[in-house]
Design a protein around this nucleic acid. Structure first.
Lengths: 90, 90
DNA sequence: CAATGTTACGATACACGTAATCATA
DNA sequence: TATGATTACGTGTATCGTAACATTG
């Protein structure tokens, strides 16, 4: 599991599409597809239900999404805090 | 920035030693040293003050540590939630 | 000078993209 | 059958470990 995979999940959930999520992520569709499959294997279940015309979160995906967002949010706060430390508000 | 680097930081902070942290992390000292240097570059400052006999957190490191722990904690909760979803308590 | 962190460098593995394939609305 | 996801596969890069080096208490 890594942070990039989590960001991919967010983008897929937001766009309901692997191809559009790939654009958002500056990656190709296969790269994103593989990366998410790998994460799904690690988490023990599918996060998305795919058909050729639609992508939607599974119940498992719904359950994981808030946790995933929280983890990415923590990362963002960490980066912001690092930046703020070196550029303090006077 | 990745989760492994964050875990390395925790181990170094806990042991006050790169070599002991490397053991905890199942990595070699150079690997850990490089990985942390890379993170420090990305965050814009040294997290640890090194001498040959001691390693201690810098003020910047002190400031980042809680954020780092929080991010790793979020990841742990995500993994636990995934496990719990497939092994619900009856 | 002994213990510990860093640098250099080569090998291996992994991530990524291209191309081809599969699936379904 | 056209759109969009997956699989196959080769390549380039990044990660990791070994060995050599630097540093300092």
């Amino acid at each position: 599991m890594n942070l990039k995979q989590l960001q991919f999940v967010i983008h897929v959930a937001e766009t309901c599409s692997f191809s559009r999520a790939a654009e958002l992520s500056f990656a190709t569709q296969p790269t994103l597809s593989n990366s998410i499959s790998q994460l799904e294997d690690e988490l023990g279940g599918r996060l998305f239900k795919r058909t050729t015309r639609s992508v939607e979160l599974t119940p498992f995906g719904e359950a994981m999404l808030p946790r995933i967002k929280e983890t990415l949010h923590s990362r963002d706060e960490l980066l912001q805090a690092a930046h703020a430390f070196h550029n303090p508000v006077h």
